[in-house]
Design a protein around this nucleic acid. Structure first.
Length: 195
DNA sequence: TGCCCGATTAACT
DNA sequence: GTTAATCGGGCAA
């Protein structure tokens, strides 16, 4: 059972939780950093894995909030989601990028990359750096090996269309820390008419 | 069963 | 700019 604070935090709309996760600290077995990019997936969203109903893969999404949904992407990579909203809502937030702060050496070893900016800039890269796999699907987020700490300082949050999807492509449900160099891709700058 | 596609990434040209 | 790697889901047959 999740602690009441975590349940209250994740039990809200994905569109409330997602921006609140920007600037939060995520650690897995003591390795991780600051969340700088996430995407919201609601069960009514054609791009969501839960849109067509429960399967063995997405079962965790249909459970209570505050748990990790880890799935294999393109048969190769692992991607980490946080289940949100009341139980059965089947909505989740995809963690797309973090700024590495703790355990840099372990991340570099797992990734085989030295450049700090590329350690966790992308959902697949992030899971590889932290050592998260399908074996961790369904784990509670308020207990080891996970550690989550809410944002303490004010953060300037920006939003835009999600990446790598083909359905509901115009919905601005990607949230990020404005100007961070650890994003998987930059957010489009506002276009001024006549510029 | 067979076929196509995907919430990706790295290594090509 | 393009493409391969690789596997589960969804749908047609």
């Amino acid at each position: 059972m999740l602690n009441p604070l975590a349940r209250a935090f994740f039990g809200r709309s994905v569109h409330a939780v997602a921006p609140d996760l920007i600037g939060a600290t995520l650690l897995f077995k003591g390795v991780g950093g600051l969340i700088v990019e996430v995407e919201a997936y609601h069960h009514t969203d054609p791009a969501a894995h839960s849109f067509r109903g429960p399967t063995r893969r997405n079962a965790v999404m249909f459970g209570p909030p505050g748990y990790a949904y880890v799935y294999r992407s393109y048969g190769i990579h692992w991607c980490l989601n946080f289940v949100c909203e009341p139980p059965g809502s089947a909505s989740a937030v995809l963690v797309r990028a973090i700024k590495p702060t703790v355990g840099l050496a372990a991340m570099r070893r797992r990734r085989g990359v030295a450049e700090e900016r590329l350690l966790c800039a992308g959902p697949g890269r992030l899971c590889e750096a932290l050592g998260i796999t399908g074996a961790h699907n369904g784990l509670a987020l308020d207990a080891p090996p996970f550690e989550l700490f809410a944002r303490t300082d004010a953060a300037e949050i920006t939003a835009g269309p999600r990446i790598g999807i083909t359905k509901a492509v115009d919905e601005p449900w990607r949230y990020g820390l404005k100007g961070s160099r650890f994003l998987s891709k930059p957010f489009a700058s506002p276009v001024r008419p006549g510029a």
